[in-house]
Design a protein around this nucleic acid. Structure first.
Lengths: 216, 216
DNA sequence: ACAGCCATGTAAGTCGTTACATGATTGC
DNA sequence: GCAATCATGTAACGACTTACATGGCTGT
């Protein structure tokens, strides 16, 4: 259900082709929602059937054409209805957290690497969003310019403020993840030190292989 | 793929029935992973086929039986292999964030309510996890007692520490969400005040209904 | 000519949700 | 006897991923 609304939200800023929408997911909505083209194209056709968008073929070079989708009044109404409905909280699934729950099965070194990867990723996200939030504040993205065209200042302020607030939230989240990953790295090191173990030892050793003279 | 590993992780603590595993998702792994029984029962049969678990029928009352699943050595090996592999970062999808991006379509009042709901939910999660992390620290849950039985103190410390670290992370996350929701409430109020609008006005007004004498 | 981008699709399969369905056991 | 809980399943559907597939356009 959210995919349709994400598409409508983007199309409300300006008419776009499926390809452009797929791109927009990479930049604008990055990590708020995502879909790849194989999901987008069929969904656009369904949206057209439901008359929430209209399609028009436009020329592209000499022979080729592309389909540009435009939101309809019914589509805007859907967007309003959805924005007003309160989100039903969903159960989160987080593979990184799940795995961290069971890191006693990993070597101290791999546990550390796990958190290092989480750290790197979160730092990169943070950087990306810091740049993005600046662009939003300056109303300096293609989509924002299109969205704000013709809006009065009070409307423009609200449109911008909500989007900025979301990205600020994502930045805070990333910062939380960074702190958590750092603490995880420390934890793996502390546990290893306390156990007087090497980086490729495990807190819980597997049953030793049978054919080796390790009996003592 | 994660469901199998979550099941193996739980079964490693102690043998359980499908029903007990479904319960365990509600308490132990709550919001790290979740699955309902209609997904669990078939997955357990697949795990049995792959010889990662063994099933044995045990009596239940006079006539009835139930199937208790136990992890195998191969199952433990899977758990180790998985714990050592680094997570591939997944694109997040967050409907609350997506919706907040487009709150200009909602009335100021509904926008506020959106954040209020987010606040309430995050506060409840925080409370729940605070209690849970205390139980973990005290090693005072059924699953923890089963998991730690027979482990030496160094192993027990690591097993506990990673699980505590995960829940601490979830608590920090919840606190981040609480702060974000509070700021969201303020924002909705500020925007409304600045626009000199009422709670059921919108930053962006829909096209007015045609059959009403509101012209002029 | 060729690479890289623009543009659009299909098909198979996995994962997860919701709803339907059944029946035994336990405690009051 | 009845309600709550224990216990296990199936079926239909929806959301998403991955891989396969095609072909025009643009600049060098």
């Amino acid at each position: 259900m959210s995919l349709r609304l994400a598409l409508l939200g983007l199309l409300e800023a300006k008419p776009m082709t499926g390809y452009e929408l797929a791109k927009a997911f990479d930049v604008s909505l990055a990590n708020t929602w995502y879909a790849n083209h194989s999901q987008i194209y069929p969904e656009l056709r369904r949206l057209e059937q439901d008359e929430l968008v209209t399609a028009c073929e436009v020329a592209r070079g000499k022979r080729a054409t592309k389909k540009r989708y435009e939101i309809t009044e019914a589509g805007c109404a859907q967007l309003r209805a959805w924005a007003e409905s309160v989100v039903v909280p969903e159960r989160q699934r987080d593979e990184a957290m799940l795995k961290s729950t069971y890191l006693e099965w990993a070597t101290y070194g791999q546990a550390r690497r796990q958190f290092e990867a989480h750290l790197t990723e979160s730092e990169q996200q943070r950087i990306k969003w810091l740049a993005h939030v600046e662009d939003l504040r300056n109303r300096d993205t293609d989509l924002m310019r299109a969205r704000l065209a013709g809006a009065d200042e009070a409307a423009a302020a609200a449109i911008t403020a909500y989007k900025v607030h979301v990205i600020e939230g994502l930045i805070k989240r990333a910062e939380g993840e960074i702190a958590w990953a750092r603490r995880g790295i420390e934890l793996a090191d502390e546990l290893r030190a306390k156990a007087g173990a090497a980086a490729d030892d495990r807190p819980v050793e597997p049953a030793p292989p049978i054919d080796q003279g390790a009996a003592g």
